[in-house]
Computed example of a mutant assay.
Amino acid sequence: MPFVRISVTDKMPIEKRQELPKVVYDAMRASINIPESDLFVALHAHGKGELVADPKFMGMQRTANFTLVHITLRRGRTVEMKQKLYREIARLAEERAGIAPDDVMIVLSENGPEDWSFGKGVAQFVEAQKPEVSA
Rank of each mutant, 00 (worst) to 15 (best):
V4Y: 03
V4K: 02
R5M: 10
I6K: 00
S7Y: 07
S7G: 14
S7R: 05
V8R: 00
V8F: 00
V8P: 00
T9K: 12
T9G: 09
T9P: 00
D10L: 06
M12W: 01
E15D: 15
K16G: 09
Q18L: 13
E19Y: 11
L20F: 07
V24R: 00
V24T: 03
V24E: 00
V24Q: 00
Y25G: 00
A27S: 07
R29G: 06
A30F: 06
I32Q: 01
I32W: 03
I32R: 00
N33G: 13
I34H: 03
P35L: 13
P35E: 12
S37L: 14
D38W: 07
D38A: 15
D38V: 07
L39F: 04
L39P: 05
V41L: 04
V41F: 02
V41P: 01
A42G: 09
A42F: 12
A42P: 02
A42V: 14
L43W: 04
L43Q: 04
H46A: 08
H46F: 07
H46Q: 13
H46E: 12
G47P: 06
G47R: 06
K48C: 09
E50D: 14
L51S: 08
L51C: 09
V52E: 09
V52N: 15
A53C: 13
D54K: 07
K56P: 07
K56F: 15
F57I: 04
G59F: 12
G59Y: 06
G59K: 14
Q61N: 15
Q61C: 11
R62K: 10
T63E: 09
T63G: 11
A64L: 09
N65E: 09
F66I: 03
L68M: 14
L68F: 15
L68S: 14
V69Q: 03
V69L: 08
V69C: 07
H70D: 09
T72D: 12
L73K: 01
R74C: 04
R75H: 15
R75S: 09
G76S: 11
G76Y: 08
R77M: 13
R77Y: 10
T78A: 09
T78M: 07
T78V: 04
V79E: 03
E80N: 11
E80D: 15
E80G: 11
L85C: 05
L85S: 02
R87W: 06
E88S: 14
I89D: 00
I89W: 01
A90S: 10
A90F: 02
A90W: 00
R91S: 11
R91C: 07
R91Q: 11
R91H: 10
L92G: 02
L92Q: 11
A93Q: 02
E94A: 06
R96D: 08
A97L: 12
A97P: 02
G98P: 02
G98H: 08
I99H: 02
A100Y: 02
P101G: 09
D103F: 03
V104W: 02
M105R: 06
M105G: 08
V107S: 08
V107W: 03
